[in-house]
Computed example of a mutant assay.
Amino acid sequence: MRKSYRIKKELEFQKVFETRNSFANKKFVVYVMDKPEQPHFRVGISVGKKIGNAVMRNYTKRRIRQSILEFKPLLRQDVDFLVIARPQASGLPMNEVKQQLEHVFKLAGLFVSKQSEEE
């Protein structure tokens, strides 16, 4: 994923957290902030130390990033969102990561609706 699609700075993470607009399931938490002036979505990924050692955390982040990349054409472009992995997300197979992220993205309303595509 290109740098322009990432949230990296602590201040930007905090702005999204402060919206308190969160959605969760057992594996992931997603915070969403609307930004209508933005040309495309931006995503921040947070994987805490409860997931495991550095190798396990990076493994989990790669799987999350790949899932988001596959959902890219379906996602709304006018948002910043954070994906936070819960400890239960540790060591999940790829299809399970994708399924769990799809579920939480639907809860958060991050997918483009069919009506918007037709307009």
Rank of each mutant, 00 (worst) to 15 (best):
Met1His: 15
Met1Tyr: 00
Arg2Trp: 13
Arg2Glu: 13
Tyr5Gly: 06
Tyr5Met: 10
Ile7Glu: 01
Lys8Val: 15
Lys9Glu: 15
Lys9Ala: 14
Leu11Met: 11
Phe13Cys: 07
Val16His: 03
Val16Gln: 08
Glu18Ile: 05
Asn21Tyr: 15
Ser22Thr: 14
Ser22Pro: 02
Phe23Lys: 05
Asn25Arg: 01
Val29His: 10
Val29Asn: 06
Tyr31Ile: 03
Val32Phe: 08
Met33Asp: 13
Met33Glu: 15
Asp34Ile: 04
Pro36Lys: 13
Pro36Thr: 04
Glu37Val: 08
Gln38Ser: 15
Pro39Gly: 07
Pro39Met: 13
Pro39Ile: 10
Pro39Ala: 15
His40Tyr: 11
His40Lys: 11
Phe41Arg: 13
Phe41Val: 14
Ile45Glu: 05
Ile45Val: 14
Ile45Ala: 07
Gly48Ile: 08
Ile51Ser: 02
Asn53His: 07
Asn53Thr: 10
Ala54Arg: 14
Val55Gly: 04
Asn58Tyr: 12
Asn58Leu: 09
Thr60Met: 04
Arg62Glu: 15
Arg63Pro: 01
Arg63Trp: 01
Ile64Thr: 00
Ile64Arg: 01
Arg65Gln: 04
Gln66Met: 12
Ser67Met: 09
Ile68Val: 14
Ile68Phe: 04
Leu69Tyr: 08
Leu69Trp: 12
Phe71His: 03
Phe71Trp: 07
Phe71Asp: 03
Pro73Tyr: 04
Leu74His: 15
Gln77Tyr: 06
Val79Glu: 02
Leu82Glu: 01
Ile84Met: 14
Pro87Glu: 13
Ser90Tyr: 02
Gly91Gln: 08
Pro93Trp: 05
Met94Ser: 14
Met94Asp: 12
Met94Cys: 11
Asn95Glu: 14
Asn95Ile: 08
Glu96Cys: 04
Glu96Tyr: 07
Val97Cys: 09
Lys98Phe: 05
Glu102Trp: 05
His103Asn: 15
Lys106Arg: 13
Leu107Tyr: 05
Ala108Trp: 00
Gly109Ser: 12
Gly109Pro: 10
Leu110Thr: 03
Phe111Pro: 00
Ser113Trp: 11
Lys114Met: 14
Lys114Trp: 09
Lys114Glu: 12
Gln115Cys: 03
Gln115Ser: 08
Glu118Asp: 11
Glu119Cys: 03
Glu119Met: 08
Glu119Ser: 06
